[in-house]
């Protein structure tokens, strides 16, 4: 097929460049204004950073070389941190699964049940794990147990939502096919939805394990045990050389967990 040139000559003129509309300018102005406000509210000041460089230099001088005599203690605490992340993830599987099944439109047809489950998930997700940790520290005292509880609650919210979304995206066909056989909702969830989405759920679980191990570091800072707790102690005692050792161990931990979870996820193809 050949394209004929336009009939009239006036059509040949190049269209003029169009300037952005007023709405674009207003949007840009609003975004700029919000950034100015944020700059002021956060007391953002590069000058202060430059003026205070000596403090940072002292800190670095004190922290180097790292004090490797605490390495054994540090590694032990890193394992605790890993355990907090592990139990926090594993123990949230049942609650996340139940809530995800209720929240997904692939497995629940009652709108009120979906809404209720989604509301619970949103609540759990919107309360940061650090806040849960502070609450549980008042109940079970300082230590790793409070950290595990905090992760179980927050992770139920996040993982439940991710799982529900994975179920939502599952193919409708096998569900319809089972509905024709007379299968009930729970039977369809069990025999069509879950077998289909299992690799995605496992991939998301590993991703959350990865995130939760890193979160449990921060939980340690508020007293929930593990290597975060040691970092906090070192800072309070001005033992910055110890702190650097702990941070190097953290780096190792994060890299190892990250690589391991990426490897398994790749094998799962999720």
């Amino acid at each position: 097929m050949t394209l004929a040139p336009s009939q009239s000559n006036t059509m040949r003129t190049v269209p003029r460049r169009r300037w952005p509309s007023a709405a674009v300018w207003v949007t840009v102005a609003v975004i700029l204004a919000v950034h100015v406000l944020a700059w002021q509210a956060t007391e953002f000041s590069p000058a202060a950073l430059i003026a205070g460089w000596e403090g940072m230099a002292d800190f670095l001088a004190e922290s180097l070389p790292p004090d490797l005599s605490v390495l054994g203690k540090s590694l032990e605490a890193a394992v605790i941190t890993l355990y907090i992340g592990l139990l926090g993830t594993t123990f949230s599987i049942p609650s996340a699964l139940v809530l995800a099944l209720l929240a997904s439109r692939a497995t629940t047809s009652a709108a009120w049940a979906q809404q209720a489950a989604r509301a619970v998930l949103s609540f759990l997700r919107s309360v940061p794990d650090v806040v849960f940790a502070l609450i549980f520290v008042t109940a079970v005292g300082l230590g790793p147990f409070a950290g595990v509880l905090a992760l179980v609650f927050h992770n139920t919210g996040v993982m439940g939502k991710l799982w529900a979304e994975a179920m939502d995206e599952s193919d409708r066909g096998p569900r319809d096919a089972l509905r024709v056989t007379g299968a009930s909702g729970p039977q369809i969830a069990l025999h069509a939805v879950l077998p289909t989405v299992l690799p995605s759920l496992a991939g998301l679980l590993l991703y959350r394990l990865d995130v939760n191990v890193r979160s449990s570091l921060v939980l340690g800072l508020v007293g929930a045990g593990g290597i975060g707790f040691l970092i906090n102690q070192s800072i309070k005692l001005f033992r910055f050389d110890e702190m650097v050792t702990h941070i190097l161990v953290v780096l190792l931990l994060v890299v190892v967990v990250d690589q391991a979870s990426a490897l398994v996820r790749k094998r799962l193809g999720a």
């Binding site: 193919d171 066909g173 096998p174 319809d176 096919a177 089972l178 056989t181 007379g182 299968a183 009930s184 039977q187 025999h191 069509a192 077998p195 289909t196 299992l198 690799p199």
Partner: peptide
């Protein structure tokens, strides 16, 4: 589009016909 659960075995898929 057949609509079997691809990750399950042929036998499992046939069994699911009895769910009703």
């Amino acid at each position: 589009k057949i609509h079997l659960v691809g990750r399950r075995t042929a036998l499992d898929n046939v069994c699911s016909g009895a769910l009703g």
